[in-house]
Every structure is written in C-alpha cells, then in structure tokens.
Amino acid sequence: GTVKVQGITIKVPNPDKAYKIAKKLAKKYNLTVTRKGNTIKVE
C-alpha cells in the first residue's frame, strides 16, 4: 500500500500497521487520516 503525507507518498507493506501509525501521528499533529484500501492519506 501507500501512505500519503502532505503530498509525499510512501509505499508500505502493511497498510493496517501503517494506518495505526498514521492515526497516532495525525492525533499528535492534528491531521486527518483517510484510508482507501492500501492507500493511506494524511492531510
């Protein structure tokens, strides 16, 4: 899958794990995490 952070896309082998990490970071930096299948977008 991929993770998008402010325009940066990161390929990740485990979208579930990445999503959990993204959620933690999002809370810390007051961002929104959206997930569509293997693509995770943080904005």
Score class of each variant (00 low, 15 high):
residue 11 K to Y: 14
residue 9 T to E: 07
residue 3 V to P: 04
residue 28 K to Q: 07
residue 18 A to G: 03
residue 16 D to Y: 10
residue 4 K to G: 04
residue 28 K to T: 04
residue 26 A to M: 07
residue 11 K to T: 11
residue 21 I to W: 14
residue 17 K to I: 13
residue 40 I to M: 02
residue 38 N to Y: 02
residue 3 V to F: 08
residue 2 T to K: 09
residue 41 K to N: 12
residue 34 T to G: 03
residue 36 K to G: 03
residue 7 G to A: 08
residue 35 R to A: 06
residue 26 A to K: 04
residue 32 T to C: 14
residue 2 T to V: 12
residue 22 A to M: 13
residue 31 L to K: 04
residue 30 N to L: 10
residue 31 L to A: 06
residue 7 G to N: 06
residue 11 K to M: 12
residue 13 P to E: 11
residue 17 K to P: 01
residue 39 T to K: 05
residue 17 K to C: 15
residue 6 Q to V: 13
residue 21 I to H: 02
residue 5 V to F: 15
residue 12 V to L: 08
residue 40 I to N: 06
residue 35 R to M: 11
residue 18 A to Q: 00
residue 15 P to V: 15
residue 40 I to Q: 04
residue 12 V to T: 04
residue 29 Y to V: 06
residue 30 N to W: 09
residue 26 A to W: 09
residue 2 T to L: 13
residue 12 V to G: 02
residue 28 K to W: 15
residue 12 V to R: 01
residue 10 I to A: 02
residue 21 I to S: 02
residue 38 N to T: 05
residue 14 N to R: 05
residue 30 N to F: 12
residue 11 K to N: 07
residue 7 G to R: 04
residue 35 R to Y: 10
residue 29 Y to A: 02
residue 43 E to S: 11
residue 27 K to T: 04
residue 3 V to G: 04
residue 9 T to N: 06
residue 6 Q to Y: 15
residue 19 Y to V: 02
residue 9 T to R: 04
residue 29 Y to L: 09
residue 23 K to Y: 07
residue 34 T to Q: 03
residue 13 P to H: 11
residue 15 P to G: 09
residue 3 V to M: 07
residue 4 K to L: 14
residue 1 G to F: 08
residue 7 G to F: 11
residue 18 A to F: 11
residue 37 G to T: 01
residue 36 K to R: 12
residue 39 T to E: 12
residue 35 R to D: 04
residue 22 A to K: 00
residue 11 K to R: 13
residue 15 P to R: 08
residue 19 Y to G: 00
residue 10 I to T: 01
residue 3 V to K: 05
residue 9 T to A: 09
residue 27 K to C: 13
residue 14 N to A: 04
residue 6 Q to W: 15
residue 7 G to M: 06
residue 3 V to L: 12
residue 15 P to T: 12
residue 33 V to I: 11
residue 16 D to N: 10
residue 9 T to I: 13
residue 39 T to H: 11
residue 2 T to F: 13
residue 26 A to E: 05
residue 20 K to W: 11
